[in-house]
Design a protein around this nucleic acid. Structure first.
Length: 596
RNA sequence: GUGGGCGUAGCUCAGUUGGAUAGAGCAUCGGAUUUCUAAUCCGAGGGUCGGGGGUUCGAAUCCCUCCGCCCAUGCCA
């Protein structure tokens, strides 16, 4: 019911529920009517119901007449208080809902702080146990630009799920048990490196040793045999190799930990592939016993005949290879062991994997295999999702690389972001003391980098452009941060706390005030969209539009006017904009600034 | 070959899953500041939504067919 007493966080769902109920007791509609309520173009109202059109089509009725009937029934039902929402019929059969000033006012008073928003959003995923697989870095390799998206997108999605009430486990599924350790150990021994003696950037050294090692293997086949022998020794628990392996993993973890801190990435647990090395036998056994897996060319594989591409009679056979022909495990084996562990140990109801687009086949096979396996063994089957993304491109539309064609180190990227941000901050605001400019620049730089990664639809490739991401114009982090900084500036000058309640506010009046207020009420819808598809760019678009509405308001209506109710009303809008922007930025993993 | 993604303004991107006259930013042009951060705001021009066909009240969105780009395609992750 759309009343003052019971004000839902998301008005759209209330309208939808009410309409469904009204339609159910309406002769022309019935139980199966789906109202399809969504945000409307502001010129039509706040929300619109499109469901009548499709319903009329399916039933061979006149949509406009049906819409009129539903509208009449809605008005008669008493569920829509005319002082709070105005209903109207438009076009071929849309029903538009326009919230009144009174409704907007009530909503803004009920949902004022980040905690209020969270209490509203927290019902969306209340208590769901979700394991998120990210950022899953590899050991013994320096992080590069390819690690940017898993950190940025993964963190944003994890925060969103937390915010929406999920009980999340962020599991860093690191690659710490691959064939590369054979090569690495071979080369370490060959060069007689003492890892304890390496002081400066030991990860860079490991990176180099691996590159040298694999190059030498190609030139000298006997070294390849040595590497295989070292790997085998490691896998059999040889003390020397195990100790080397531990050092390599520690060096990698330390180096990544520094990056996680800079990037604001939080991790709950870090169970790498090595953790599952004694758990893959059970996978082989159960999948063989259930008849899901079979032997093929010496390997243990799973065919999925119902999917053409993975069927055994496909022209190009593409099985899910879960044990290599030499008996060793691969990432399919460990991923299977991992999902079982997540369900048995963490009681995961959902498991979300974050990787780039190229791994779609792997996850499709993994999910199919898991379903069949868990089904036959009577294990609870979790909801599985593969959240994937496109490539970061340079201006030439090819994968973004250094001029010499190498992949860009993540640290280099972060440093350059901060340097460039410092130049911008210095240019725009040279009055600030050096130390503060530095601090602002590092926040702005990282924010710009992250926001550029989040603002476009993740399934698309995007073009990396320093100037654009650091611009104060357009859909960028600086534009959003600037809006927050300006709000803070107003409260600072007024000597008020933006987080304290504001008393004595008069009603909203101007066009700019109302547009802003309506936009503020759009947060729940934006969160819904973002959560449904796990696509952070929906949230970005919303925040950008909100900041735009605020900037227009800021230019049109002076906040610190003499008339107390007007001033209080505008300050209230400022405070709400601030808390909404800060909430949204927080969800994106971006830190807001007091001033810039 | 098969599968996935994609093609929207000169450039970079949205477009709530079939809805109302396809929207932003940059760039171009024209305006706004004795005023809370102008690092902003307001306005104008700019489109055969890759081409063609189909489905229907209605298509950038769904189907078919071409053209073009990216990615994956048996034991790397």
């Amino acid at each position: 019911m759309l009343s003052t007493m019971q004000l839902s966080f998301n008005p759209s769902t209330v309208i939808e529920t009410a309409l469904r109920q009204i339609a159910a007791s309406c002769e022309a509609f019935g139980e199966d009517f789906e109202p399809e309520v969504r945000a409307a173009d502001p010129k039509f109202g706040d929300f619109q119901a499109n469901g009548v059109l499709g319903f009329a089509k399916r039933n061979g009725k006149n949509p406009r007449e049906l819409a009129q009937q539903l509208l009449d029934a809605a008005n008669k039902s008493g569920q829509f208080d005319p002082t709070l929402v105005e209903l109207s019929l438009a076009g071929p059969g849309f029903i538009n809902f326009k919230c009144t000033r009174a409704y907007l006012w009530n909503w803004l008073n009920q949902y004022a702080t980040p905690a209020d928003y969270q209490s509203g959003a927290g019902k969306l995923k209340a208590g769901r146990k979700v394991v998120i697989d990210y950022p899953s870095a590899n050991t013994a390799k320096q992080a590069h630009i390819g690690h940017l998206r898993p950190m940025v997108i993964g963190e944003a999605i994890a925060r969103l799920l937390d915010f929406c009430g999920a009980d999340t486990v962020r599991d860093n599924h690191i690659g710490d048990w691959g064939t590369n350790f054979g090569t690495l150990i071979m080369q370490i021994k060959r060069e007689r490196i003492d890892l304890d003696q390496v002081k400066e950037d030991p990860l860079a050294l490991l990176d180099q040793l691996y590159k040298d090692g694999s190059r030498l293997e190609k030139e000298q086949p006997n070294l390849r045999d040595q590497s295989r022998a070292e790997l085998l020794k490691l896998q059999e628990g040889d003390p020397e190799n195990t100790s080397l392996w531990e050092k390599i993993v520690d060096i990698s973890k330390d180096a990544f930990e520094k990056l996680y801190q800079q990037m604001g990435v939080q991790i709950d647990i870090s169970l790498g592939e090595s953790f599952y090395r004694d758990k893959v036998e059970r996978v082989y056994r159960e999948l063989t016993e259930t008849g899901i897996a079979e032997h093929s060319e010496g390997a243990l594989v799973v065919w999925h005949d119902e999917v053409k591409k993975f069927a055994r009679d496909n022209e190009r056979p593409y099985p899910f290879n879960i044990r290599k022909s030499d008996g060793a495990s691969n990432y399919a084996s460990t991923d299977l062991a991992t999902i079982l562990y997540r369900v048995e140990h963490f009681k995961a109801e959902e498991v979300i994997y974050l990787t780039d687009a190229r791994q779609q086949d792997h996850f499709q096979q993994l999910f199919l295999t898991t379903q069949k396996w868990f089904n036959l063994c009577n294990y609870p089957t979790p909801i599985t999702r593969h959240v994937w993304w496109g490539t970061i491109l340079g201006k030439d539309k090819k994968p973004f690389k250094t001029k010499s064609g190498e992949s860009i180190k993540l640290q280099t990227l972060l440093d350059e972001a901060c340097e460039r941000a410092l130049a911008v901050v210095t240019e725009k605001n040279s009055d600030l003391p050096e130390a503060e400019r530095q601090a602002i620049a590092s926040t702005v730089g990282i924010a710009a980098l992250k926001y550029a990664d989040l603002a476009s639809n993740r399934t698309q490739d995007y073009v990396f452009d320093w100037d654009r991401m650091l611009s104060f114009e357009g859909n960028t982090a600086p534009y959003l941060l600037y809006a927050v900084a300006r709000i803070n500036s107003i409260f600072r000058k007024a000597e008020l706390d933006p987080e304290s309640p504001i008393e004595g506010a008069g009603p909203l009046e101007t066009e700019a005030e109302l547009t802003l207020a309506r936009k503020l009420m759009g947060l729940p819808g934006a969160l819904d969209l973002t959560l449904n598809d796990l696509r952070p760019h929906f949230l970005c678009t919303y925040l950008y539009e909100l900041a735009g509405a605020y900037s227009s308001f800021y230019n049109a209506d002076k906040v610190m006017v003499d008339d107390p109710p007007t001033r209080a009303g505008r300050l209230l809008l400022c405070a709400r904009t601030r808390s909404t922007l800060m909430t949204g930025l927080e969800l994106l993993g971006i830190q807001a600034l007091d001033r810039m």
